[in-house]
Design a binder for these strands. Structure first.
Lengths: 203, 203
DNA sequence: TCGTAGCTTTACCAATTGGTCAAAAAGTGA
DNA sequence: TCACTTTTTGACCAATTGGTAAAGCTACGA
C-alpha cells in the first residue's frame, strides 16, 4: 500500500504524490477547500479519482499535506532576518523577499489566505506552534534594534503585519490589482514599499 | 410573488429579506460561496429553506445581492476623500475610516476578500464599472497634491493599495492577528498606521 | 365574514461529490 | 517465464445539497 508506515516510497509514488499535490494546489488555491472537488484535482493531475485516493486517505489529507509543506516555505523569509545584520537592510530585504514570494508563489499565498480567512480551521495549531514563537522572537529583535537607535520607534508587531499585508496583497488581490493597473505591478510595488519602509524606519 | 417586478414590498418582505441577507452574510463570510449551504443560511435566518427560495431565486442571487450592496459601502470612505481638503488630513482620515470599517464590518470585509481571492467571478464587472473610475479619479487627486508639493512623491496607486492591504488585514486575517496578539489591535494599529503614512507622506 | 393574495411548510428530486471495492493491469525480482 | 506486489480502473454507494411542487396557513381589504 501507499501508507507512510512502510519504508522507501517508490519512484512512481514520488512522482504521483507530487503530481497530485501540485494539481491540488492549483485547485484549492483557485476555489478554496469546499469549492475544490476530487474530480477537479484528479483531472488536473491526469489521474483517476480512485487513484488519487490510493495515494491520499482523503480530500482533507491532501489539503493538510499542502498546508504543512506551505508553513515552512512561508516562514522562511522571516527566519532569514538576522539579528546581527544591519537593521534597515535586514528589514528592507525581508520586504523584498516577501514581495518576491507573492510573485513567484501566488498559489501558495492564496491557499494560505483562504485558510486564514475562514478561521484557519486546519492551521491554528501550526500558527500557535510555529508562527507565534518566530513572530515573538523577531519582534524582540526589531524592538532591540529600535532601542539601540538603529531604527525609528514603531510598534514591531504592526510593522510586521503591515509587511505581510502589503506584500501578500499583490498575490491575494491579484484580480483587483490587475483590474486597476495596466502594467505589471511588481517593480513599481518594490520601489514603493522600499520608499515607504525606508521613510518609516529611518532613525 | 416576491419578484422585484411588482411594486411595494410588504413589511414581511422587508423583514425577511433583510433577515436572509444578514444570515447569508454570516455564512458566506465564514465559509465562502461554495462552503456555504442554503440550509445553514436558512437556520441562521430562522426560516425554512423553501421559504428562503421564496424570497430569492437561488443561492447565487443571494450572494450577488450581498455583493451589490457591499460595493457602495465599500467605496464610500474613498468617495469621501475630498480634493479641496488638506491633503495629509484627507489621507490620514481615509486610513482611519478604512481601519474603522475593518473593525465594524469584518463580515463585509471577508466577503469581499473571499470574492477577490477566487478571481472575483461575480464582481469583475463591478470592479471595472465602479471601482476603476473612482480609483483613477482619486489617484489623480493624490498625484495633484504631490505635484503641488503638499505631499511627498510616491506612486499614488501603490499608496492606495497599501492602505487597503494594511487596514483590511485586521479583518481578513483576524484569526492570525488574534493568535499573535494578546490585546485588541485596533488602537495600536491606528497609531502605527498614522505614524507610517505621516512619515511616508510628509513633504 | 369571506375571498384572495401573500406567505410558509411538507415531501420530494436530481445532481454532485467524497469515498469504497474488487478486479484488472502493470511492474518487478528470481 | 512465473509468482507476487504495486498500481490503476470501472462500477458503485450514501450523504449532501440546490432546488421544486403543491398543499396549507395567514393577513387583510371589501
Amino acid at each position: 500500500m501507499a501508507d507512510g508506515t512502510s519504508k522507501k516510497p517508490s519512484r512512481i509514488q514520488m512522482r504521483n504524490r507530487s503530481l497530485i499535490l501540485d494539481a491540488a494546489l492549483d485547485v484549492f488555491s483557485a476555489h478554496g477547500y469546499r469549492g475544490a472537488t476530487l474530480d477537479q484535482i484528479a483531472e488536473a493531475a491526469g489521474l483517476s479519482k480512485p487513484n488519487i485516493l490510493y495515494y491520499f486517505a482523503g480530500k482533507e489529507e491532501i489539503h493538510v499535506t499542502l498546508l504543512n509543506q506551505l508553513m515552512e516555505t512561508w516562514l522562511d523569509p522571516l527566519v532569514e532576518m538576522d539579528a546581527s545584520g544591519d537593521p534597515m537592510t535586514e528589514l528592507l530585504d525581508y520586504v523584498q523577499r516577501k514581495l518576491d514570494m507573492s510573485r513567484d508563489l501566488p498559489r501558495e499565498s492564496r491557499l494560505f489566505a483562504g485558510e486564514i480567512l475562514q478561521g484557519a480551521p486546519r492551521m491554528l495549531p501550526h500558527l500557535r506552534a510555529d508562527l507565534k514563537p518566530l513572530f515573538d522572537e523577531k519582534c524582540a529583535i526589531i524592538q532591540a534594534w529600535m532601542n539601540e537607535g538603529k531604527l525609528a520607534q514603531v510598534d514591531p508587531r504592526h510593522l510586521v503585519f503591515s509587511i505581510w499585508a502589503t506584500t501578500q496583497h499583490y498575490a491575494d488581490f491579484d484580480t483587483q490589482v490587475r483590474t486597476l493597473l495596466d502594467d505589471d505591478p511588481h517593480d513599481s510595488a518594490a520601489r514603493f514599499l522600499d520608499q515607504m519602509y525606508r521613510s518609516l524606519l529611518a532613525p
